[in-house]
Computed example of a mutant assay.
Amino acid sequence: METSQAFGLAHLWAQADLVIRGVALMLLVMSITSWYLILLRIARQVRARRFDGAVEAFWSAPDLGQGLRRLAQQAAGSPFEALAQQGAAAADHVRRHTHQGSLGSTLDADEVITRALRKSIALSTASLESGMTLLASIGSTAPFVGLFGTVWGIYHALVNISVSGAATLDKVAGPVGEALIMTAFGLFVAIPAVLAYNWMTRSNRLELSELDAFAHDLHAWFSTGSRIVPLNELQGGSSTPASIRPATSGAA
């Protein structure tokens, strides 16, 4: 019992040199950073659930101004609100600078709106991917950091055993086992980071696909005054679904 109590985390830290302590602190910082990013993303996903239905509320609005206000109320600060605001600003810019005979009359409205929507999507993509590079780096390097600590710890344990001249199993197992704890720490840091990175990647892909679909509808609306009607709705017998009639009339 006394021998088993002589080994453990406290004993490892007490007899560790600066390298082992530095590796342990590095893994601790990496773990705190990864969990901070994970919790931030979870909080963002919880907020994003409140955005459900905001796009349909936008399209069911009687006019563009009311639609933007509904987005601001139901999805404030979301990529969808930013996209609609950017598209509306671009359409208004083209409308105000296309007077006959002016340089602005040569502007291609379709190109201006497309560039504005692409810019908004690019900014939203950068925001969604913020921190993911760091998370991927932690997930890929943490096991090797822990392995380095293990190798260093085993080396010093074997040196101390050779100096003492006691190479029995009970003298070897304790120090080597303590050194292997560093590998376990590395895996403890890496596994949540890798799982969170895969989850974030999938979540970003789904959100960006929805944002891209919204951008296509906005582009069609600002360019033609009518939202693209899904084929299944057209086959249902209504060429102008009620959900987009107000938006179409608002454009006119």
Rank of each mutant, 00 (worst) to 15 (best):
S130E: 13
A122P: 07
R118C: 01
S120L: 10
A126K: 04
P143Y: 07
G101N: 05
P143W: 02
L103Y: 07
V112P: 04
L117I: 12
D110L: 07
Q100C: 12
L128R: 15
L117R: 09
T150F: 01
S120W: 11
E129R: 12
L117C: 04
Q100R: 15
L123M: 06
L103N: 11
A122N: 07
L123T: 13
Q100M: 09
S140P: 02
A122V: 10
T150R: 07
I121H: 09
P143D: 00
V145N: 02
L107N: 11
T141A: 11
V145C: 00
S130I: 03
I138H: 02
L107Q: 13
I121G: 05
F148N: 05
G101A: 13
E129M: 06
L103Q: 12
M132Y: 08
L134T: 14
S105Q: 09
S102K: 11
S130V: 08
G131C: 04
V145Q: 04
S120G: 10
G104Q: 01
S120M: 11
L117H: 02
D108C: 06
T98P: 04
T141I: 03
V112C: 02
L123W: 09
L134G: 04
G101H: 13
D110Y: 05
S120D: 13
A122M: 12
I121N: 08
E129A: 12
T114W: 01
S140M: 12
G146A: 08
K119M: 08
E111D: 14
T125P: 01
I113H: 00
R115G: 06
S137F: 09
S130H: 14
M132E: 15
I138N: 03
S124R: 04
L123C: 02
A109S: 13
D108R: 06
L107W: 09
S124H: 09
H99Q: 15
E129Y: 07
V112Q: 03
L107G: 04
S140R: 01
S124N: 07
S130C: 03
L147Q: 05
S130Q: 15
G149W: 03
R115M: 15
T125A: 08
P143T: 01
S105L: 10
T98H: 14
A142W: 12
Q100S: 14
L117G: 03
D110F: 01
G146I: 04
G139M: 08
D110S: 15
A116F: 13
A142N: 06
R118T: 07
T106A: 15
L134F: 00
D110P: 02
A136V: 09
V112G: 00
L135E: 03
G104V: 08
T114Q: 13
T141P: 00
A109E: 14
S105P: 01
S137H: 07
G146V: 00
L123K: 10
L135F: 11
T150V: 04
A122I: 05
F144K: 12
A109W: 01
D108T: 08
T133C: 06
S120C: 10
D110M: 11
R118V: 01
